[in-house]
Amino acid sequence: MKKVVFVFEDLPVENGNGFSTYNRAFISCVNHEEYSISLIITGSNHQGYIYNPQQVLNCKVSSIKVINALLSTTQFCIPSIKGVLKLFYRKFLKGRVSVGDDKLVKIGRWLTSGERASVANEIKKIKPDVVFVDTIFRSFDFTTLAPDCKTVLIGHDVFFERCASMISNGLKPSPMITPELELGVISQYEDVIAITEHDGAIYQSHHIKNVHVLPSPISRRAFIPAKSKTKDLFYLGSRAHHNVNGLLWFLNNVWPSVLAADPQVTLYVVGSVCELIPKTFSNVKLLGMLDSFSEICDVSAVAINPVLSGSGMKIKTLDYLANGLPCITTELGAEGFRMGSENGPILIANNAEDFSKVLLSLIHDGERLSLLSTEALKLADHFSFDGFKERLGKIL
Results as ranks from 00 to 15, higher is better:
residue 39 L to H: 00
residue 332 L to R: 01
residue 156 H to V: 12
residue 43 G to C: 10
residue 87 L to W: 12
residue 348 I to C: 01
residue 119 V to R: 01
residue 177 I to C: 08
residue 318 L to G: 00
residue 378 K to E: 09
residue 308 L to K: 11
residue 165 S to M: 09
residue 329 T to E: 09
residue 148 D to Q: 14
residue 73 T to W: 07
residue 232 D to G: 11
residue 49 Y to M: 11
residue 60 K to S: 12
residue 312 G to S: 09
residue 71 L to Y: 10
residue 369 L to V: 06
residue 347 L to S: 03
residue 52 N to T: 11
residue 235 Y to S: 05
residue 314 K to R: 15
residue 41 I to S: 00
residue 369 L to C: 14
residue 316 K to E: 02
residue 23 N to V: 05
residue 163 C to I: 04
residue 137 F to W: 14
residue 393 G to I: 05
residue 361 S to I: 03
residue 101 D to F: 15
residue 220 R to L: 15
residue 1 M to Y: 04
residue 111 L to I: 14
residue 359 L to N: 04
residue 347 L to M: 12
residue 140 F to K: 02
residue 255 W to Q: 05
residue 99 V to E: 14
residue 356 S to C: 14
residue 34 E to L: 13
residue 213 V to F: 10
residue 159 F to V: 07
residue 221 R to A: 09
residue 37 I to S: 00
residue 240 A to F: 12
residue 266 T to G: 03
residue 151 T to V: 13
residue 383 F to Y: 15
residue 207 H to C: 13
residue 122 E to M: 08
residue 4 V to C: 07
residue 376 A to F: 01
residue 189 Y to P: 03
residue 6 F to V: 04
residue 298 D to R: 14
residue 159 F to P: 01
residue 314 K to E: 00
residue 219 S to T: 11
residue 220 R to P: 07
residue 55 Q to T: 10
residue 344 G to C: 11
residue 140 F to M: 10
residue 250 F to Y: 15
residue 368 R to Y: 05
residue 389 K to D: 05
residue 47 Q to V: 05
residue 224 I to V: 14
residue 391 R to S: 14
residue 294 S to P: 03
residue 367 E to T: 12
residue 53 P to W: 02
residue 105 V to L: 04
residue 362 L to E: 06
residue 209 K to P: 06
residue 159 F to C: 06
residue 296 I to F: 13
residue 5 V to G: 03
residue 244 V to L: 15
residue 322 A to L: 10
residue 352 A to F: 06
residue 53 P to C: 10
residue 353 E to P: 01
residue 37 I to F: 02
residue 36 S to K: 11
residue 35 Y to T: 07
residue 46 H to C: 08
residue 141 D to R: 08
residue 105 V to N: 01
residue 292 S to D: 15
residue 207 H to I: 06
residue 329 T to F: 10
residue 16 G to N: 05
residue 100 G to C: 13
residue 89 Y to M: 09
residue 372 L to S: 02
residue 393 G to Q: 07
residue 211 V to F: 06
residue 102 D to P: 05
residue 73 T to V: 08
residue 63 S to R: 09
residue 349 A to T: 04
residue 304 I to N: 03
residue 213 V to A: 10
residue 361 S to E: 10
residue 338 R to F: 14
residue 303 A to G: 13
residue 372 L to M: 12
residue 112 T to N: 08
residue 219 S to M: 08
residue 97 V to P: 03
residue 202 I to M: 09
residue 252 N to V: 09
residue 378 K to D: 09
residue 340 G to K: 03
residue 312 G to W: 03
residue 38 S to W: 02
residue 18 G to F: 01
residue 231 K to E: 08
residue 288 G to C: 13
residue 350 N to K: 07
